[in-house]
């Protein structure tokens, strides 16, 4: 299933997410996270998108995966964080 998500982050930034996932298993097949936020280093967003593949659309799993990614890769997000990214991605099931 394909979903286009537009999610207004508290604080003002806008996340736009293109997502395809398996309807039965809820596993992410492909994801692109775009928007007007900031991330340092910028290129880490592509790595995060890779890491999210095959992960299940579940609040705890996503929050853990994104949180560890930020910590392990020393990434700094400004305008979004693990929790808002998780909420935005989960809009796919709303």
């Amino acid at each position: 299933m394909e979903k286009q998500i537009v999610y207004k982050v508290p604080g003002g930034k806008l996340l736009k997410i293109s997502l395809s996932f398996d309807e039965t298993t809820h596993k992410i097949k492909d994801i692109m996270i775009s928007g007007d936020f900031f991330a340092y280093p910028e290129e880490s967003i592509e790595d995060l998108e890779q890491v999210l593949k095959e992960k299940v659309l579940d609040a705890k799993e996503l929050q853990d995966v994104i949180g560890s990614f930020i910590k392990d890769h020393d990434v700094e997000f400004i305008g979004v964080d693990a929790s808002t990214l998780t909420d935005a991605i989960l809009e796919a099931l709303a």
Partner: peptide
Amino acid sequence: IGYFQRLSE
């Protein structure tokens, strides 16, 4: 456009 944005969008 910002680094994370989609041009066509």
